[in-house]
Each structure stands twice: as structure tokens, then as C-alpha cells.
Amino acid sequence: MNEHDWNLLNAYLDDELPSRERSAFETRLGREPDLQSEMESIRTTVSLMKLAKRVPVPRNFTLDPAIYGQPARLTLWNRLSAASLPRTAMALGTLSAVLMCVGVVLFVSQSSLGGAGAPQAAMMAQEAAAPEAQSDFAAGAVEAPPEAAEPAVAAVEEEPQPAGEDTARSSAPTESEQGGMGGGASATGGDMGSMNDAAEGAPSVEVEPIQPTSTIEQSAITDLTQEQVTEVANAQPYAAKGTEGAASQEPVPLPSEPPAPLPTRSLAILLVGVGGVFLVMAVILAVVARRQRS
């Protein structure tokens, strides 16, 4: 007998079959003795089960009004107060402490930054101006050698020494470029080095005329740098001065504005405030929990 027939048989016994299925099953019962036999055995089993009379209750299961008297009001409050209230108070207290600490740290750090705000702004402006000064210097240094190097070249040409002349001519602009890239001190040293090398190759060439070239470059560098520093110290608009100082240079990008301190400070105050509210709530909950316990 398959499971479907078993289900049909039990549903038939329990009167749970629709009328059409019921009549079809009754037709089958008349034709199939095995099905009839199974049905009788199950019917007897069900009848036996129905003999299992109800047993009396050992006691009443009514609830004590003294304990369960006010369910509607107490349900939520009991849940809170039974175990959650002290835990909630503790969690709120911890959270408030963390929030307030973070807020105070933020506030103090912001205040210390704000107290040194003016020097910092000057430093930032100076840092931003440094590349400009360097580029200005480079421009000046590149322009300077043709004027300053002329006497040197002329002096060299006065005493014909082909090898030294070529070397001096080729090295002078090169060193000027190097000085422009690397700075005044290295430019001077570079000049001296190259000229010494040239002098070794041609001892008759005088080194002296070269010295003024380096001095001119150095003085030009010093002037330009002092000019730039003066501009920065006067706190004039950066872009306007920058374009004047380096007329032939590319436009200098404006430095990014320093971050406004206001949102951070507001956030710090907000954190401290929220932490304070949580702290008050934690104290209230702790007091209520203690009163309930007592």
C-alpha cells in the first residue's frame, strides 16, 4: 500500500475527504479486500486511542494575581527593569564617557591649532612661496649669465687659447643652468670647479674674470629671495605678486585654502553635548534601577 492510499484511508476514516473522492474511495474499498483490511485495523487503532480518557489535572494552573496583577503596564517595564536597566545604564555611561573624551580631545587639538593660527598661516604662505622663489631665481639666473659672462668671455678672448676658450664658453652657461636648478652656493662651487678644470687644460687662462659672474649670480639670487620673503611678509595677495615677480613664468597655482576650523570645533562641542545627555540618562536609569532593587 502506497503513501497516497494511506493518506486517503486515514482521511476517509476522519471524514476529511471531499464527497467526490470519498465516493471513489468507497468504490475501491468494495473492490479491494486488502484496502478494506487495512482500513479496519486503522479504525480499531483509532478507537483504542480514543479510549485514552482524559486525565485530571494535578492542580489548577491559574496565575497568582499578586504576581501577575498588572500585565498591561508591567510587561515592558518589567522587561526593562528585570535585567536590562542596569546594563542599559552602564552602556549609556560608557558611551557618554567615550563621546565626551573624543569631543574634548578634538576641541583641545582644534584650540591649540587655532591659537597658532596666524604664524601657521604665515608659514603656509611661505612654504607656498618657496617654489615660486626658486622658479623666479631660476629665471633670473638663466637671464643673468649672458650679461655677467660677457666680460669673462671677453677676458678669455683677449688671450687666445683655443682649448680653454671652448671649455670656458661651454661650461659657463652650463654652470649657470646648474646654479639655477640647484641654488646659489652650488652654482658658485660649480663655476669654480669647472673653471679650475678648464684652467688645468689651459694654464694660461685666467680664472679671475669668472669670479664676478658668480658673485653677480649670487647677489641676484639673494636679492630675489629677499624680495620674495618681503612680499610674503607683507601678506599681499599671492597671485598678484607672483605674477609680477615672475613675469615670464607660467601662472603660479593658488595655494589651497587652509581647512576651516569651525566644523571640527562644532563637532567636538556636539560630541561633548551628546555625551553629557547620555551621562544624565545613565545616572537617571541607575537611580531608578537602584530604587527598584531596594
Binding site: R54, V55, P56, T62, L63, Y68
Partner: peptide, 14 residues
């Protein structure tokens, strides 16, 4: 609620 308990307790217990 206790009236409901008394009504259903025999069936529930069984």
C-alpha cells in the same frame, strides 16, 4: 485570564 486558564487547563495538561 484565570477564567480562560480554568477552561482550557484540562485539555492543555492532557
Amino acid at each position: 485570564y484565570n477564567a480562560l486558564v480554568l477552561h482550557f487547563q484540562i485539555q492543555a495538561y492532557n
